[in-house]
Amino acid sequence: MGIVKAADVVYEYIRRDEEGNVEGITTAVDKVSLDIAQGEFVAILGHNGSGKSTLAKQINAILNPTEGTIWVDGMDTSEEDKVWEIRQTAGMVFQNPDNQIIGQVVEEDVGFGPENMGVPTKEIWERVEESLRAVGMYAFRKYSPNKLSGGQKQRVSIAGVLAMHPKCIVLDEPTAMLDPSGRKEVIRAVRGLNQVEGVTVILITHYMEEIIHADRVYVMDQGKIAMQGTPKEIFSQVEKLKKLRLDVPQVTMLAYELKRRGLALPDGILTAEELADELQKLRA
């Protein structure tokens, strides 16, 4: 079994009116099954309201599935006495950087998780240092979070999770509120964690450029998994992605457009170099 496994997970929100009567039921996650291996970089893609965040919160045991089961490192997330161990194994980074930093100073924030876990003082300091170094924020350890840019704040949040020594990190749209340079910073840090530290990464996003380096991509729509495969396989299906309210990188779009107009190009071109190479072949 992988580090995170979901079997037929269903999550329903019950909507109530002002008197508390049930008005209706929204199925946010609908029979989702997935299996993620230790050390993988998995991206979950979907438009706003596709159910991807609801799924993420269940991996962290913030929400519990209405039906079906999620296992984190073999632990069933609905078992109450395992909650803290689960949250420590699969850490979570949220969207809004301002609403998840608790400390007034960067290093104190990173130490918050280990403090809660009861880690001895000396080890907390070691963990804080190595986590801040891993995301390239060590030089800012004495700063107030309010003085940092959005990208830097998110890297601090990642360090805060990393200091809990998780096997897996779930990032719920960590770049949605950032500008392009902040987005790049965060993605670079996340890739570093995955490649250097070997942490399993589950990245939830709606930005296409961010998933190019993923090992595997799940695309969600209306609570279901609509597509899955490698980034190349996913981006080969431009029309289907458009139907799912998503986009493709401009280079993929250009290749698709050229192919539509009669050039013999392969599907799923992801980089400018690839496109140049393919065009070179055509001219030869």
Binding site: P180, Q250, V251, L254, A272, E273, L275, L279, Q280
Partner: peptide, 18 residues
């Protein structure tokens, strides 16, 4: 200055170089 032209610009410049 921390900005980027659209990806299209980069692609076209690369093609021109080639």
């Amino acid at each position: 200055v921390g900005l980027a032209a659209p990806q299209v610009t980069y692609i076209l410049h690369l093609l021109k170089e080639r």
